[in-house]
Nucleic acid binder design. Structure first.
Length: 580
RNA sequence: GGUCCCGUAGUGCAGUCUGGAGUGCACGCCGCCCUGUCAAGGCGGAGGUCGCGAGUUCAAAUCUCGUCGGGACCGCCA
């Protein structure tokens, strides 16, 4: 080794020993002809070296320093620094690499730098304490999860990156085949198909820290490629999967934060929608939806009399915070989420007790006003936002408004883990075929209590499907799968997929189930998202070494780029002229 | 495909509403000074296609239109 210690390691106990450190010049401070301080930095920290001022080292030079550890005295001790009680003196400095000045500050100030500049020089950005911490958090997460899975007898299996294209789900990245020009592989959106085949193959418990790829627009919590802990188990029910999946998540959280979270709360999808207007509710704050429908059973107010579901949220002491402009903004937002409108009521005290300041106050009867105030437990100065629509719209719109008004940044504590269970098997109806659309995917096992309603009332059938939610972010989802070909056929029929079409689209997947498929189910959750939240970041790019910006163009490598005609020729590909 | 926000020195900003010479601040950089600093200090200096292109105007960083780049969100992500 070129070094005897790392730059953040030395303490008083090392005094008098001769050491060698290697790292980058963090900062140099000159003090006249024969004195300068050079702070040498690596991922572990910084150590001050006392050198002669004729040593010409500058920011980010890579150096090797050999010297004696000496104790600092009096007010030269720096209590802000773990190594602040010692320094290296005298020192021999060897320059291993010179460096141009970094394109942005190496300290916290770079957090404000345009992210494109950080990404263009990611190799420099990665040297900063924040990125060092984040990548190490991520590594801890991976290690904890892997050992939690292995500890529960899960078998790690790598599944192919080159697989057939399947029309369902997200847009895929395609890979042209050289040996069969005109044909394409697809990169996996998830190892879903293979992991179920592993169950048929008797692996019993499978896991993989799997790279998944989806060619959909990027967001703060979405990249083209992302990592999932993917798992599948045989001979299990929902509880078995949730319990097994939890271990890795909680272990990872404990490893990073030092605190083991309480076991994960559970809530049905229906309750989540009723109470929070979201299938990924953020439980760090209240402001739950309040049911008002019965109050308006025979109302004169047209906007309410025709609505199937009327609910509200109460913003405590929000009346003054939300002026006309902000309320108009919220109304626009409510409309953009599908509501016909939004009613706001500011609670104030009048002659006969509490009353409403609102454009629609005159349409409400005294009984209705009293009932609203009683039901919401409103007090003077509160703001009440009411949505009246069909049940799903009412809930979803209020859920969005609730988040908009009350939700803290995802990375802020406390951490609230939640299992949302019993998702509906079908969501909505396909506009062209008139058939129900699968809520999760077509292979979810219906809830056993609802099996007899499959044909008679499909929209009310619950699936044995579940999501894991952390602070309002969906970490992952899973289900118990259909292992019985007869039940699978029933579901396909409901979806309007006949046997021939099922064979064509899913044949290679369904055929194996004829050969003895065990009952099985599984789960997958996003490691980028978990790592980001545990690292205190609001954007998964901060826990990815080389992420892509929203355009998908990598400013570091300039990918994607054009390729030589010869390569295309070999693949049997001819490009169309650019669209105008 | 859509909505909103941003683009001025290596970096972060002010200036833009209300047009008047690239007017300015902080950090960084270069040089000099400085023997106890630690996001050192002092003095001096260099550094600009105001994203790009049109238009309006005597005059555009500033107003208008277009375009490119970035971000958040909606759609999309079974």
């Amino acid at each position: 080794m070129m070094r005897t210690h790392r730059c953040g390691e030395l303490r008083l106990e090392h005094v008098d020993s001769q050491v060698t450190l290697t790292g980058w010049v963090n900062r140099r401070r000159e003090h006249g002809e024969h004195l300068a301080f050079v702070d040498i930095r690596d991922h572990s920290g910084v150590t001050q070296c006392v050198v002669d001022n004729d040593v010409d080292v500058r920011a980010e030079y890579v150096i090797k320093v050999t010297g004696t550890v000496v104790a600092r005295t009096g007010d030269t001790i720096n209590s802000d620094l773990p190594t602040g009680e010692i320094e290296l003196k005298p020192c021999e400095v060897e320059i291993l690499s010179i460096a141009e000045p970094p394109p942005f500050p190496m300290d916290q100030r770079a957090d404000d730098v345009d992210e494109m500049i950080r990404l263009k020089h990611r190799y420099v950005d990665l040297r900063r304490a924040r990125m060092q911490k984040n990548l190490r958090v991520r590594s801890q997460v991976n290690a904890s999860i892997r050992s939690a899975m292995v500890g529960q007898d899960f078998v790690e299996v790598e599944t192919p990156m080159l697989m057939p294209s399947t029309p369902e789900g997200a847009r895929e990245f395609l890979v042209p085949s050289r040996q069969r020009p005109g044909n394409f592989y697809a990169l996996p959106q998830s190892p879903q198909l293979y992991k179920q085949l592993l169950m048929v193959g008797g692996l019993d418990r499978y896991f993989q820290i799997a790279r998944c790829l989806r060619d959909e627009d990027l967001r703060a919590d979405r990249q083209y490629e992302f990592m999932q802990l993917d798992m599948e188990m045989s001979f299990v029910d929902v509880d078995d999967v949730l319990s097994a999946a939890e271990v890795g998540v909680l272990d990872a959280a404990e490893a990073v934060t030092g605190v083991r979270p309480d076991s994960v709360e559970r809530m049905t999808w229906h309750d989540a929608m009723e109470r929070f207007g979201s299938d990924k509710p953020d439980l760090r704050f209240g402001m739950e939806l309040i049911e008002l429908t019965p109050i308006f059973a025979s109302t004169e107010f047209k906007a309410f009399s025709t609505a199937g579901s009327i609910k509200c949220i109460r913003v405590e002491q929000g009346a003054d915070q939300y002026g006309r402009n902000k309320l108009d903004g919220l109304t626009d937002e409510a409309k953009s989420f599908g509501a016909k409108g939004m009613v706001w009521l500011k609670v104030r005290s009048g002659e006969a007790g509490l009353e409403f300041d609102s454009p629609v106050a005159k349409f409400l009867s005294a009984d209705e006003i009293a009932a609203i105030i009683a039901t919401t437990e409103a007090t003077e100065g509160d703001l009440i936002l009411v949505i009246a629509d069909e049940w799903a719209t009412t809930c979803e719109v209020l859920g969005e408004l609730r988040n908009r008004i009350g939700r803290p940044p995802v990375s802020e504590g406390p951490y609230k883990y939640l299992w949302v269970t019993d998702f509906p098997l079908f969501v909505g109806v396909d506009a062209t075929t008139g058939r129900p659309k699968p809520g999760h995917h077509a292979f979810c096992q219906p809830h056993p209590d609802d099996l007899d309603k499959l044909e008679s009332d499909p929209m009310s059938v619950r699936a044995q499907a579940y999501d894991l939610v952390l602070n309002g972010w969906e970490l992952g989802s899973g289900s118990i799968r259909i292992h019985d070909p007869k039940l699978q056929r029933r579901v396909f029929e409901l979806l309007g997929i006949d046997e021939e079409e099922a064979d064509k689209r899913f044949g290679f997947f369904l055929e194996p189930f004829k050969y003895g498929a065990p009952p099985h189910g599984g789960f997958a959750y996003g490691i980028d998202r978990l790592a980001a939240i545990l690292a205190g970041e609001e954007n998964i790019r901060e826990v990815i070494a080389f992420p892509k910006p929203q355009s998908g163009m990598d400013p570091l490598t300039n990918a994607p780029g054009a390729v030589d005609d010869g390569l295309l020729e070999e693949l049997g590909i001819r490009l169309l002229p650019p669209a105008t």
